[in-house]
């Protein structure tokens, strides 16, 4: 492989797979919270006609 192609390969893998790894790690550190407080409806829905 040429050096340019190799660099592009490495950089793209680092960005895309790195993005996947980073977002997965973030989600693991901030897991879903318990279902609860937010489920209490307080405001009636307003139907908007077009």
């Amino acid at each position: 492989m040429t050096a340019t192609a190799l660099v592009v390969l490495i950089v793209s893998l680092a960005v895309v797979w790195g993005g996947l790894a980073a977002s997965t790690v973030y989600l693991r550190r901030h897991p879903e919270e318990d279902d609860g407080a937010s489920a209490t409806p307080t405001a009636p829905i307003v139907m908007h006609d077009l």
Partner: peptide
């Protein structure tokens, strides 16, 4: 109801591209 939607979207988007 309580779901980390935005972080989930990033995981799905990057997984698809990966």
């Amino acid at each position: 109801r309580k779901t980390n939607l935005t972080a989930t979207g990033l995981v799905v988007g990057f997984a698809n591209s990966s």
